[in-house]
Amino acid sequence: MTSRKPQSMKPATAAKKLGIYLPATPPEFQAGEVTREQLDELQSNPPEWLAELRRNGPHPRPVVAQKLNVTISGLARGGVSEALTTQEISDLLQNRPQWLVDERANMAAVRDEQKRIRDAAAEKATKTKGQSRHFH
């Protein structure tokens, strides 16, 4: 019987799954592979460095975009190309530069349109179900 090597991932993949900015992680995290078991342990019992990164950043762009309620493309249009700390995100939310106001409005419009399309599709499906009963 052969023992199987535990499944592992690159540090960049693990950082993405953890929602953290890889260059801000400890060197030992960046240096080696991360097994699924190690990832599970980090998620369920985060060490202080991980808790600190999640709390104060710097945060990777997907997390920054989520916290600002904009898309990653919206960040780029606003000139944000680097990771931001929690404080920098708070400052943006308090001061609301025009690009952020515009991008949040765009995001809201896209979400409204997606909801309208989903509602229309659900209504059509309901009508179709109702009509199919009459033909049997």
Rank of each mutant, 00 (worst) to 15 (best):
Q43G: 02
L92Y: 14
I117E: 06
R111I: 06
F135R: 13
A105M: 01
S81K: 13
K5C: 13
S90V: 00
E82K: 11
K115L: 06
Q114I: 00
S81V: 15
F29Q: 01
A108M: 05
T126Y: 13
N106P: 02
V70T: 05
E48A: 12
H134C: 10
E48H: 11
P47W: 08
Q43H: 12
V34T: 07
T2V: 15
A12H: 08
A15G: 00
P97S: 08
N95H: 14
V64N: 06
P11S: 00
G130L: 13
A109T: 10
G79A: 07
F135L: 14
A125K: 15
P6V: 04
L42P: 11
V110W: 15
Y21W: 09
V63W: 06
L42C: 08
N106Y: 08
K16L: 11
P62W: 10
I117G: 01
I89C: 11
T85M: 04
D91Q: 10
V34D: 13
T13L: 01
A105P: 01
E37P: 02
M107C: 06
T128M: 07
E41N: 14
G74V: 03
H134S: 14
Q66V: 00
H134F: 13
T71W: 09
L42D: 02
D40Q: 15
T2P: 09
R54E: 13
G74Q: 11
D102W: 04
R55Q: 15
R96P: 02
P26Q: 07
R36I: 14
E28L: 03
L50K: 07
R96A: 01
K17M: 13
S44F: 14
A105H: 11
P60V: 02
Q87S: 13
A14D: 04
T13N: 05
P27V: 01
D112T: 04
L50W: 03
R77Q: 13
L18I: 10
A122T: 09
E37A: 11
K10Y: 10
G57C: 09
Y21R: 00
A65E: 02
R111M: 11
K124G: 01
H59R: 01
I117M: 10
R96F: 03
T13C: 01
P27A: 04
T86S: 09
R61K: 11
T13P: 00
Q94T: 07
F135A: 13
G74M: 08
A31N: 07
A76G: 09
G74K: 07
P58I: 03
A121R: 03
A108T: 08
L84P: 08
A12E: 15
Q114R: 12
